[in-house]
Design a protein around this nucleic acid. Structure first.
Length: 289
DNA sequence: CTATGGCCCTGGTTGC
DNA sequence: TGCAACCAGGGCCATA
């Protein structure tokens, strides 16, 4: 098992990268695995970024956004999605880290996009807010002001989806992944197979608070690490994995009631529940064929 | 609108 | 001990 970058890990990456990157100038580009660019030509990336300066490093959903500028004018942005195993690290200019898929030479050192499994993506956009761009369809930020209990209740009621896959849908809510959905549902005492439109106002309130508390605590602990793979850009592992309530704890006691945590598969994803704290909903009636 | 399944990938784990 | 099969999974796409 490796680590899975979700909102807290991406936020940690952006925070730790910021002081090492803002103000740096990009000197050159070396694309070792072209598919990382998601269809963008390496020459286009090179032309767009060489000579530009890093103006800001921020996060939206699970994207790291590296804003670029030339003089006072915007020079677009690098949109980086870590997917399963991606990492962004700043190394000495002569370092050759393993699994480097893209190397961006800086005026001091080099920024590497490392990615064992090659699912991650890094590409340049002239306008990160482009309505055709990858950020446009994303739902609200779970730590943003618009993510309220009232909004969540109405949004869930307006859909007829299984709860967990809906929470993983980045166009519904942006930033949650498999781990933090399982953790949040457990805290809120909701079953992952519950129907979204069966979640009442009280339960929606619990879920909204659980999501925010889980994400905030994980950010404080700089994300979750499972093994030697995941490191923050500073080279340190996160520590939130020690707080897991259900994720990866199959057969072990629920921290709330002591019942054995169970593992099931929901929408092709490993899912962890306490059978006592999170009672299963009545089975869905499938439409006749 | 909602759900399902395939695809991309490779290191670690499991099974024999 | 060695080696092959298997598994994990976020986002995207085609299909029903």
């Amino acid at each position: 098992m490796s680590y899975m970058p979700e909102l807290p890990e991406v936020e940690t990456t952006a925070r730790l990268l910021r002081p090492r990157l803002v103000g740096r100038r990009l000197r050159d580009v070396d694309v070792r695995w072209p598919r990382t660019l998601g269809g963008q030509a390496p020459a286009e990336l090179e032309e767009a970024v060489v000579g530009a300066r890093v103006a800001a490093v921020r996060r939206r959903a699970k994207y790291v956004i590296i804003d670029l500028a030339r003089g006072r004018r915007s020079a677009g942005a690098l949109l980086v999605h870590l997917r399963m195993t991606g990492r962004l690290v700043v190394e000495r200019a002569d370092a050759t880290p393993d699994w480097s898929r893209v190397r961006l030479g800086l005026d001091r050192g080099a920024l590497h996009f490392l990615d064992v499994r090659k699912f991650g993506r890094l590409r340049w956009w002239a306008d990160p807010e482009d309505p055709e761009g990858p950020l446009a369809p994303l739902g609200p930020e779970p730590l943003g002001e618009s993510f309220t209990a009232a909004w969540l209740h109405r949004a869930l009621a307006g859909r007829r989806r299984v709860l967990k896959p809906l929470l993983l849908d980045q166009t519904f809510l942006a930033g949650l992944g498999n781990i933090y959905v399982d953790e949040s549902l457990h805290i809120a005492r909701l079953h992952p197979l519950e129907r979204s439109d069966a979640v009442d106002r009280r339960a929606a309130g619990r879920l909204q608070r659980a999501i925010q508390a889980t994400l905030r605590e994980a950010i404080e602990r700089e994300g979750s690490s499972f093994d030697a793979f995941y490191r923050t850009p500073e080279g340190q592992p996160g520590s939130y994995q020690h707080q897991f309530r259900v994720y990866g704890r199959e057969g072990r006691p629920c921290r709330r009631c002591g019942a054995a945590v169970e593992r099931l598969v929901v929408a092709q994803r490993g899912t962890h529940v306490c059978p006592r704290c999170q009672p299963a909903p009545p089975p869905r009636i499938l439409r006749a064929p």
